[in-house]
Design a protein around this nucleic acid. Structure first.
Lengths: 200, 200, 200, 200
DNA sequence: AATGAATGAGAATTCATTCAT
DNA sequence: AATGAATGAATTCTCATTCAT
């Protein structure tokens, strides 16, 4: 009659932390089990396979972002500037948080490489990310511009997140987010002009 | 049979292709050997270990970029706009080329995670990348602005490169590069203003 | 299939037998596993490495000797002649026993060569051996003589044990032990004289 | 038209040194080649296999002992005490010499274990050793005693040689040899008596 | 639910050996 | 005679997974 020592959530979080730190292929089920205070055999009570556990990790991160980050975009009671700020500031804190992790941030490629199925999950995450950011920009800009701004912002965030990790310096991401937020305050005309210029 | 079947270069390139496609940890020495038409034991003639092979791969990519991409930045016979174009257009073709690969592009994080030594190599790559881009911007902008523009451009490139791979759509990267190139044509004053605005 | 097939002790003993028969470097983990009716991977449940298994084998032999051989030397309820007899007769039966083995007997050198740590373990074994034998001689002889007799006896035993194995003839060891035991019955004076003679 | 870089002798000696230091199984052909300043493939010009090389090493050591050590026993122009001294003093210097080595000394067991053929070679070595020593003793003692003394002396030498290596202290062997040499000076009667005592 | 034993496939690596040059 | 490339078998070790208790 063994007592339950952990729950699914705990295992998913411990797995996330290890995948983030060491990558999926370089993390063994034993390590995950050990991080949970379990024997490796016990993990199979919760997840039928390592791949399935990874799936759950990705989904959990995705859900977390939906609830805690992307949701800000859709809160119509808040003005667009402020919504953008809420979204990116919360994204920043998640990305830079060891625990909550950003498996889907700059590790998107590695994750996507694992299997077509994972690629799909990663795509969905970024689609949601784009959609949220674009939704905000649509309050101030027409479709084409909003799309471009959203893709650009998320790309900058992902790129600078990578630098933050590679150089172990949070400022890359922080400065990028500051810059993105400052951009939305600028007069519409300037942006329009530039975008137009690119379209020929 | 004792006739030379491959050379170091070939092995490094085959390894690069596989690492790019499958990630380092998910690629076995057998696979690399098979890709070269060798027995796995034979690889150890050329490289004392898998890690060492990886080191060589990274260095080769770095050298390739120095010679074929970053070098454009320092060709003072060419006007800055054109230098920026040469640099990013060549970067684009390398990044999107299966063969030459961009291990150090969006896979920087996984690579960097492998070991402190690899992290250092990845850092050096990006430092060189930053430096090249910044050198061009310095022809038109003062130090602070050039730095910011360089970091931003490289971040955008890296982020959109990730999207290109995740969504299997080269346009993410292509559009980003177009945008970056169009930016340098804009009057200095606009940029200055925005940067100043961010500095308080 | 998850039913315990062997225990640590069994593995250690099987390893000992093989090391004795084939030497450490010429015995593979597969062979040891096969001798235990296990798959090779299963050994790593019990021992983290081959070297560690060797360590355990050495320690087990050492413990066995402490308990079953050297202990006779310290049983003060028994007269010295008899103690010496008990010690060497039990040593003989262990040395010549395939199962209990004498890895630390005449294979001391190969074992000691393996690594400094193993050398230390072998040294400890012989120190204990010397100490036990010397303790007995001290009941009849002064320090200097007891030391010399102990070193000599153990050396003779080891040398003749080697011959017993090389010539596959137990009599080398048996006769040596008989001779050693007969020696202690001799008048002290004769021994003293000889030892004195050597001391100039 | 490659020049001869080494000769058989050199290789045999380098191999001997390595086998002595690391044991046969733990020494690779590459290491031997490297010690000779050759590529491993080149060794096969001189010896058809590693085993054959080992055979040659054993034979060379045996020949060396025949010529430089055992020969002293048969030089009838020298009195027995002096012959014994010559024999053991030369043996001592060989045994303790890193270069000339004593593969057949205390490593007899490991060597003998390798294959029946090697066991035979080791047996022959010790038979010659016994015979030489016994020949000297026969000048002073009758057959039975000479045999016993020879076996005992060689056993002591081998045992103490092992201690010298395990404890890295040449004195074990040196003192043993001193003791053996002092023994032959003693009156015949004492030895006779003891030997007789053992024979019932 | 948890464990710990066991598995078997496969990882990286080593190595004796072969042979064209 | 020497080399260096190549091999293939073997070695140590790892790991996802299974399952009886």
């Amino acid at each position: 009659m063994p007592k339950q020592k952990v729950d699914e959530q705990t295992i998913i979080i411990e797995a996330l932390k290890l995948f983030r730190k060491q990558s999926y292929f370089n993390t063994s089920m034993s390590e995950i089990a050990a991080a949970c205070g379990l024997q490796k055999g016990s993990l199979y009570h919760y997840f039928p396979s390592k791949e399935d556990l990874m799936r759950r990790v990705i989904k959990m991160v995705h859900e977390f972002f939906k609830t805690n980050v992307f949701a800000h975009a859709y809160d119509k009671s808040v003005p667009p500037q402020k919504r953008l700020e809420n979204l990116f500031i919360s994204a920043e804190s998640v990305f830079l948080d060891e625990t909550k992790g950003n498996l889907l941030g700059n590790m998107g490629v590695e994750t996507a490489l694992m299997a077509p199925e994972f690629n799909t999950l990663v795509q969905r995450f970024f689609q949601d990310f784009f959609h949220a950011v674009k939704t905000i920009y649509l309050d101030k800009y027409p479709e084409a511009i909003a799309t471009e701004l959203a893709e650009r912002s998320v790309a900058e965030v992902e790129g600078s997140l990578m630098f933050s990790r590679v150089f172990n310096d949070h400022n890359y991401l922080r400065n990028t987010i500051k810059r993105i937020l400052s951009r939305i305050d600028k007069p519409v005309s300037a942006v329009k002009e530039r975008v137009k210029a690119q379209l020929e």
